[in-house]
């Protein structure tokens, strides 16, 4: 629970460091708030792991993160008609890495469901290797999309902190030898906290103080 709160709030905090009051309108900032929360969810998924009694919780959280990612994508595509041109040939690289991250997340989730996983991977160790590898690629794709688009992480120190945060969340437990014991509540906590954080992400930028 503590690490979930840490992961989401840290990702959002880094986005506020340079230009906390710079809003782009509610529609745009809410849509991108969902994107940042989805990214935090990806990081947290890598942290909690999906073995033992956490399997169901890990799966459910994966679906929730996918739902938040879908909300980010379609929110912007539907509300800003110019965005559609940035998911077509000729779009900048950071959009393609975002799209690749989204598609990899879909693939990652579905090939990990027991009915497909057992067909694809006979050995659990091999499945785990590919699952972790694909998860890392998904995070790299989404991270590149966030950093290079430059909308919210415009300063080099923000990028450095963001990368440090990703490294801490993704690799920190490997060094410390820790895994969260019970994640049964994390999907609902993630969803509730995520919605609150999206409101804060857009509200702080757009409410005149």
């Amino acid at each position: 629970m503590k690490s979930l709160v840490f992961t989401i709030t840290s990702v959002l905090f880094v986005s506020f460091l340079a230009t906390p009051g710079l809003g782009a309108g509610w529609a745009w900032d809410v849509g991108n708030g969902f994107g940042f929360v989805a990214f935090a969810g990806l990081l947290y998924l890598s942290k909690i792991g999906g073995s033992g009694r956490n399997v169901r919780a890990h799966q459910l959280l994966g679906f929730v993160v996918l739902g938040v990612t879908v909300t980010h994508v379609y929110w912007l595509l539907l509300l800003d008609a110019a965005v559609i041109e940035y998911v077509k040939p000729g779009a900048p690289l950071y959009m393609w890495t975002g799209i690749a991250g989204f598609l990899m997340l879909v693939v990652l989730i579905f090939i990990s469901l027991p009915e497909y996983r057992l067909r694809l991977h006979k050995r659990y160790a091999l499945f785990k290797f590919w699952h972790l590898g694909l998860a890392l690629l998904t995070i790299i794709g989404a991270g590149h999309h966030i950093v290079v688009s430059g909308f919210y992480l415009g300063e080099p120190y923000q990028v450095a902190l963001f990368l440090l945060l990703v490294a801490i969340v993704f690799f920190g437990d490997s060094f410390l030898g820790k895994r969260e014991a019970d994640t049964r509540q994390s999907s609902w906590v993630f969803l509730g906290l995520g919605v609150f954080c999206v409101a804060a992400f857009a509200g702080i930028r757009n409410v005149p103080f």
């Binding site: 379609y74 539907l78 509300l79 008609a81 110019a82 559609i84 998911v87």
Partner: peptide
């Protein structure tokens, strides 16, 4: 959505 664009009543460049 890619072919037709958003169905919402917003400006379409």
């Amino acid at each position: 959505l890619l072919i037709l664009g958003t169905p919402l009543p917003v400006e379409h460049p």
